[in-house]
């Protein structure tokens, strides 16, 4: 039976790698499109690459250790291995080796990620202005942050979106309001202000590799640069109550021209004041 059980444990890396490989070939049956969704953000590839880097690294370790496990089970099956056991309590050298190698790898992974993290969450887009001493590119440069194009407010259970309108400032009477319908211009750095009216939500754009919990009492900024035209999902990724599942929004990325047209249309619809046109989109 020892042989059988060893093969069962061999099946783990074989099938595991198989499943991942099949999933990564995005058009293979039955795992069609069971992999990272289409990336439409300019910096999305960074996260994808990191994901893949870690996947390959851990994949090697996974396959290595699993194969070792299989091989030891196969070889040292009590029914077959008739010699005496190797009576030993460990090896100091080995312990040191297999402590230092993973430690170094892990530290490398950690430090390797720092920039990507900073780009995604810390360095908000803006223009650098001369600092107090009047010179550019010094420590005390002032940054004029890019204003958000829209404010996205999570509430139970919808995303209320509010475009800055003509004056470029969110919160004035010329704002354009939509529900669950976020349109953005392509190839431009987009900054969104996100906030919550009631409980925690999470603003998740799978196709932009962007996720940020929306915390009541906080206004946060998220930013990315869409690079493809199309229509994509906005998902809520933090439990926000019974209707959590239905917080579906739609993000439409379009050319600047289309976007402006859309925004003007929205503004016009919002000003609708005669009955004849009420059947409009």
């Amino acid at each position: 039976m020892g042989r059988f059980w060893s093969l069962l444990f061999l099946a783990v890396p074989v099938l595991g790698v198989g499943v991942f490989a099949a999933a990564m070939m995005t058009d293979s049956w039955p795992l069609h499109n069971h992999w990272l969704p289409r990336d439409v953000s300019e910096k999305g590839y960074v996260i994808d690459n990191l994901f893949n880097t870690i996947l390959y690294l851990t994949g090697v370790i996974f396959v290595g250790t699993s194969l070792a496990l299989f091989w030891f089970l196969w070889k040292y099956d009590g029914e077959k291995n008739l010699g005496p056991v190797r009576f030993l309590h460990g090896s100091h050298t080995l312990e040191v080796v297999w402590s230092i190698i993973p430690a170094a790898t892990l530290l490398f992974i950690a430090i390797y990620q720092m920039n990507a993290w900073a780009d995604a969450k810390i360095d908000r887009p803006g223009t650098r202005l001369a600092g107090a001493d009047g010179r550019m590119n010094t420590e005390d440069d002032l940054v004029e942050f890019q204003l958000p194009i829209a404010q996205v407010t999570g509430r139970q259970f919808e995303w209320r979106i509010r475009y800055a309108g003509r004056d470029g400032v969110v919160g004035t009477s010329d704002d354009v309001h939509t529900v669950n319908d976020l349109h953005l211009p392509v190839d431009e750095e987009v900054v969104l202000q996100i906030k919550s009216d009631d409980v925690l939500h999470s603003f998740f754009l799978p196709n932009c590799r962007l996720k940020q919990d929306v915390v009541p009492g906080m206004k946060q900024m998220v930013w990315f640069k869409p690079k493809e035209v199309g229509s994509f999902d906005i998902v809520c990724a933090e439990l926000c109550g019974w209707g959590h599942y239905k917080m579906k929004g739609r993000m439409t990325i379009q050319s600047r021209k289309d976007f402006d047209q859309w925004l003007t249309d929205q503004e016009r619809i919002q000003q609708e004041s005669s009955f004849a046109l009420s059947e409009e989109e």
Binding site: L36, V46, I47, L50, F51, I54, L55, L57, T58, L106, I109, A110, Q113, A116, W117, A120, K121, P206, R209, L210, K211
Partner: peptide, 11 residues
């Protein structure tokens, strides 16, 4: 390890 890596964790 995927989760520990902050940028990957975003996704």
């Amino acid at each position: 390890i995927f989760m520990a890596a902050t940028p990957v964790d975003i996704f």
